[in-house]
Design a protein around this nucleic acid. Sequence first.
DNA 1: TAGTATAGCATACATTTGTATGTATGTCAA
DNA 2: TTGACATACATACAAATGTATGCTATACTA
Lengths: 208, 208
Amino acid sequence: MYAILWVMNLTKKQQRVVECIQAFQRAHGYPPTLRELAAALHVKAIGTVQGYIRALCKKGVLVQRKDHARALRLLHSERPAWEIPIVGHVAAGQPVLAPEHISGTLPCGGLVADPQHTFALQVRGDSMINAGIRDGDFVLVHHQPTARNGDIVVVRVDDEVTVKRFFRDGAQRIRLVAENPTMAPLVFTDTSRVEIIGVVVGLYRRVK
Amino acid sequence: MYAILWVMNLTKKQQRVVECIQAFQRAHGYPPTLRELAAALHVKAIGTVQGYIRALCKKGVLVQRKDHARALRLLHSERPAWEIPIVGHVAAGQPVLAPEHISGTLPCGGLVADPQHTFALQVRGDSMINAGIRDGDFVLVHHQPTARNGDIVVVRVDDEVTVKRFFRDGAQRIRLVAENPTMAPLVFTDTSRVEIIGVVVGLYRRVK
DNA sequence: TAGTATAGCATACATTTGTATGTATGTCAA
DNA sequence: TTGACATACATACAAATGTATGCTATACTA
């Protein structure tokens, strides 16, 4: 949910209404009518929707032009040109997104689901070449402390940050696999040496 | 004027109508009604506007939902600068950016230098696997009719659109190389069979 | 020359759509 | 308990809006 709506003190249902209007507008290119909204919300009475609209107008989330068809205007719905930070070398024990690690930004907000918790990391070396990740590519990383088996993750092993495929073999065994036949898998029985920084959710490469 | 509209053979007035719809949508957040359009065009008869809409629909610039208020949808002319079109199958002899080829948009304007002339193409097959381009990846393509030796290009060969590495060996010889050891280079002495659609300038992949 | 497309005006009509006004239920705070 | 509010349904009505039709005029083409 957008941060702006959070501070507006909307009810769950009212947020759902806003989402529905956004979705409809995205899908059709124009806003919904009250009856179309009712259908989208699985509500049978337009009176109910009238109430929603009135409330949202009062809260300043929406403007409705009186007596005009389909004249709903959602405020604050313009998608910001989000930029996600490019993270460089990460020092041991420090948070990844600390300002001193950020070497630039990549303007790819719309491409990722959660730009606020996503960062880019420029890959060095060919350790993931068989996964189609090459030297110089930017991996888009969702910053999260856990991963599922088989995920491509950004991990910190001791003092080094690398990109590997992640497997947990039982409670006390973590295996990090490089997608490169010349490199052997790394196996850790001391799981505290491995810290998951995030999961790779996308990749961007500049060609030429 | 937008390149797309240029190829559609619109009359001056019809272009003006498209501009008016755009302007209205920008100003209000929703499309105009026929009567609002008439007013904006300084035309007193809605019948006139009806004619415009009918013509524009026939030319594929516009979609109007029958019997619905304000349900005008302008195709591809209101494209935000940060979204580039995703081009699907391109029929022979037709412009790549014709509306019927566009299957969606990718919000990565900031990533490319010239979003207005860049589109995305989802790659099918492993013919470029050694260039790190995999099945399902989106290549970001700058729409241009020429390429330099060694560029990765999107070309139309006869009726098929493919991604290959481009080489021109002298005036009458074009060589298209797949980055896959199992595929032999394609050599053309009849250069008219090969049309360069654009040059790959970036790559985006959704992981997971 | 006739035919077609574009451009424009005017009006009647049917449908879509917002508005107003009921009723009822549940929650929460005063 | 009372009052305010969110939620939900139903219906009648008026305004907004698209549709259909007929008319005139100009420009271009076959």
